[in-house]
Design a protein around this nucleic acid. Structure first.
Lengths: 337, 337
DNA sequence: TCATTTTGTGCAATCGATTGCGTAAAATAA
DNA sequence: TTATTTTACGCAATCGATTGCACAAAATGA
């Protein structure tokens, strides 16, 4: 039934040349005459030849495949990053195998193993929220396969590359906006501070308060999962406080908006009673009333940069890891004064 | 420098058995004694052996890889579907190569070619918005590689499988909600009706109006790109109408919310003056005030179903294509009466 | 015309795992 | 003990493309 695979051998036979010549001719190798090249390519076309990437990869041990491990695919931000990655990858002749770690080290490890076996030429990782071990990336190191962390990088020191933004400064600036407008009872709703991104945003929050000589109490910092549910719960908790805070820095937009929404339902005026800022500039954020103060987190750019960097490392194995930081943009909205 | 690859030959030599035995032993082939199996696996572990998926795939011509082509990665709905796909795929021992067509036939074709060369075992496609040709999937057909369309399927008849929802009925029901509450001047803001999804939603809109004996004028149907910008433009256009509509069925949530937002800014009361319904139930939709009337579009489930179905087709090549339709859920909100 | 350089091709090994078929050894039956 | 069945394993070909090296033919130079 199934039509036989057309290989370079078939083409070779049809043209009465050797497979070696066909292989070279197909990619315009300089030592093959123009005429033969052309003939080979035409016949290949005619016979419906399709190069077998597997065979090629096996022989050359380059798969032109990049592995990507993300906590989850269904996040606004992450899908933007992936979009950027895919675009750049294709432009550079690579493609992506994308896997989810579901925020567990266990799965992350499993993904790494699988991608390793699949002989990816490079690995792009946004780490899981569990206290991140990095040993499972060691095999890549010994085989000299570049690994690059983006967005979420391990807290521990590691010998790999990374692409991030300066979360500390972003957190600092978002907090400062509220402080400058008079907020003094500040709250920070954050995610898992095992993750460097959240830890750094928290650091930024801290240093802004410090600058205004406001002492930081542990119960001004709430660790949540930053989902809609968490926002609602946080809002309820806020409503039960004896004195309301007058400024909240929420570590992502989803949660920030959930909080705003719930507080508004209970007749709290935003930003007059409480100023609120988010993080990420999710597409919906600008549509809310009041418009959310947030930072533009350059997802697409991050994806593109991650890929171009890792491809560069693949092509120049001798280069040492690169730590890159992208610019962010403050988006002032009417959720702060 | 680079450590030499450990292969089954190395293990074979270390254990003084044949590579064939090692190959079998690693996967507990029944014809290898338990004892030998165990010994082989232990040594493999000890020597740091990693199976070479490329070699295996080349030999068996099964790559355990599924190709996925989507219009774009950075869409809320799509990332949900992909999340579901990835999850199911891993569970079934497969993984995903994801590519974007950026809504052009050209790129879609290119993606198909690439994925074909990479010997994917199956192809999952959500078609581009351009008038979809399906010839580029023909090679898959001849090689008996299953192709399955999800969400966006070609308008033309085709010999492949599909997983969709009943967009026609969903559109019908969303429209009917507004009609039953008295709306009579209805507007439909839709996407590219070359796409079956939008065409069907439009059909649903039409049949609901017909049921209420309301005639449909072409200028009650606006084709847009359904983005935030498009929503704003649509809202402005609405504001300029001599008589305002009293009901709008928008073909996705993003655009619906953009419209609501803009109309509200111009003091239009939703739903009192105009009822509005969306489509998709994007995570943010429920946070808006008024809460959007929409349909829950089962992204994760769709992704999972698409993968389980295609894997089934891969394993049973003789089975004929399957057309599946998933259930949707109406989410009544306060954006309609 | 003969020597030398340049061009164009082919040979054959290689990348690592798989598998149909054959067979020696062990287990069982007679 | 001999015949028969089972069990456990090895041989060698195969999947398709790549590439260092050798070499013949053509082009150039003297």
């Amino acid at each position: 039934m199934q039509k036989k695979e057309v290989t370079i051998y078939d083409i070779a036979q049809a043209l009465q040349v050797s497979p070696a010549t066909v292989s070279r001719g197909l990619k315009n190798h300089p030592s093959i005459s123009k005429k033969t090249c052309k003939k080979i390519q035409e016949t290949a076309q005619k016979m419906g030849y399709r190069s077998n990437a597997l065979a090629s990869s096996l022989r050359t041990s380059r798969s032109f495949t990049l592995g990507v491990i993300v906590p989850r695919l269904d996040s606004n931000f992450m899908s933007t990053v992936l979009a950027g990655m895919e675009k750049s990858a294709v432009e550079l002749g690579y493609h992506l195998i994308i896997m989810q770690s579901f925020e567990t080290d266990e799965k992350e490890k499993e993904c790494a193993r699988l991608l390793f076996n699949h002989r990816v030429d490079g690995l792009l990782v946004s780490t899981s929220a569990e206290r991140g071990h990095t040993e499972h990336f060691a095999p890549f190191l010994t085989k000299n396969i570049p690994v690059l962390f983006f967005d979420r990088v391990p807290l521990d020191p590691h010998p790999f590359s990374s692409v991030t933004i300066n979360n500390q400064r972003a957190g600092y600036e978002l907090t400062k906006i509220m402080l400058e407008k008079g907020a003094r009872q500040l709250l920070h709703v954050t995610g898992n501070t095992n993750l460097r991104v959240y830890k750094e945003r928290l650091d930024g929050f801290r240093s802004a308060l410090k600058e205004f000589s406001i002492s930081i109490l542990p119960d001004h910092i709430w660790q949540t999962n930053l989902g809609v549910e968490d926002g609602i719960r946080a809002a309820e908790k806020i409503l039960r406080m004896k004195t309301l805070p007058d400024g909240i820095f929420v570590a992502n937009d989803t949660c920030a908006i959930a909080i705003i929404n719930h507080l508004q339902k209970h007749d709290i005026e935003i930003p007059d009673q409480i100023q609120i800022s988010g993080f990420n500039n999710d597409p919906f954020a600008s549509l809310f009333t009041p418009q959310l103060t947030t930072v533009q987190y350059p997802g697409t750019a991050m994806g593109e940069r991650a890929v171009t960097t890792i491809v560069d490392l693949i092509k120049n194995k001798n280069k040492s890891p690169k730590r890159e930081e992208l610019d962010f943009t403050l988006i002032p909205g009417s959720s702060t004064l």
